[in-house]
């Protein structure tokens, strides 16, 4: 992205700056009130032994004890490993398929509406239902997937997809990608609408075929969209929770445990508010580092 041109024409008037600030404030107030304040409130909490229910003995400051316990907990590190693996697997699967589907659907002339709606359907399925449906597909021993694979490969040894620690995370990846690619697809579709038709016409004159048109027109024009999609998908992936909480509770043997699930278990099941706050702060710092690094990397690619 090139630098903004120095604007000599506009004078920095009082009204202008008033309007700018006026447009910015509602969001800042809402974010401060509903996201930042509660998060900042959890910082002092993370140094205490606060529980959910009231206690007749006063809540104690316990220093860095929560942090020390978390960092020496093997489960926490396993959760970090799991979410990174999950992110690495889901980024190409989900974003790639979303882009592909968007490109095909964009220029589709016949049955346009029906096809788009069908491709969009998984995304509007409530997650609870998605997990119920996929649990029956992954079912062991008589699930649809096992029966299908066995029909194709008769000697196939049936697998307990969600109950085996080597396959559980991958199974969650496919379910998640199926459910959520609609999100990226819709955004790519909107991005594709912004590409001017003239660019394709010009490409056609220069004799560019389908693939070349994609590589030289579509892909570069989707740059800003792709940056958005990659950043958001990364954060969403690192925040993985709902599917895991319903389907595997982090098991078997912690192989699908995630950072948010770790925090949830401490806070909502163990009712250890202080401990849970500490783990959410650690999680924030970790994911923020990743996102910042990614943003700098994407920024470099942009220039």
């Amino acid at each position: 992205m090139r630098k903004e041109p120095k604007n000599k024409l506009s004078r920095f008037s009082l009204l202008e700056s008033f309007q700018e600030l006026g447009m910015l404030t509602p969001a800042l107030i809402l974010l401060a009130l509903f996201v930042m304040t509660p998060f900042i409130m959890s910082i002092p909490l993370s140094f205490t032994n606060q529980k959910l229910f009231p206690s007749p003995i006063p809540v104690k400051l316990i220093g860095l004890r929560n942090y020390r316990q978390i960092l020496s907990d093997g489960e926490f590190w396993q959760a970090i490993k799991n979410v990174f693996l999950f992110t690495l697997m889901i980024l190409p699967t989900q974003c790639g398929f979303a882009l592909l589907a968007a490109c095909f659907l964009n220029k589709q002339a016949i049955m346009k509406k029906t096809l788009r709606a069908m491709f969009f359907l998984p995304f509007i399925t409530p997650m609870v239902i998605v997990t119920v449906i996929w649990a029956t597909i992954y079912k062991y021993p008589t699930g649809l997937l096992n029966s299908f694979v066995q029909t194709v490969i008769p000697r196939f040894q049936m697998i307990d997809w969600l109950g085996n620690r080597h396959t559980a995370l991958t199974a969650i990846v496919f379910l998640s990608a199926w459910q959520a690619y609609g999100f990226q697809m819709v955004i790519y579709l909107a991005g594709l609408q912004n590409i001017p038709e003239e660019l394709y016409e010009a490409a056609a004159i220069d004799g560019a075929g389908g693939w070349k048109r994609f590589a030289y027109v579509t892909w570069p024009s989707l740059k800003n969209t792709t940056i958005f999609v990659l950043t958001i998908t990364t954060i969403q992936a690192l925040k993985l929770f709902t599917q895991v909480n319903i389907l595997t509770h982090g098991g078997p043997l912690g192989s699908t445990n995630t950072l948010v699930h770790y925090m949830y278990e401490a806070g909502f099941i163990g009712q250890k508010i202080g401990y849970s706050a500490a783990s959410s702060i650690l999680m924030f710092l970790l994911v923020f580092t990743v996102v910042l690094a990614q943003r700098l990397l994407l920024k470099r690619m942009e220039d």
Binding site: F39, I235, Y264, G267, S280, M283
Partner: peptide
């Protein structure tokens, strides 16, 4: 801010 999981706040 988007990083902060809803469950945490």
């Amino acid at each position: 801010l988007y990083i902060i999981p809803a469950e945490a706040i």
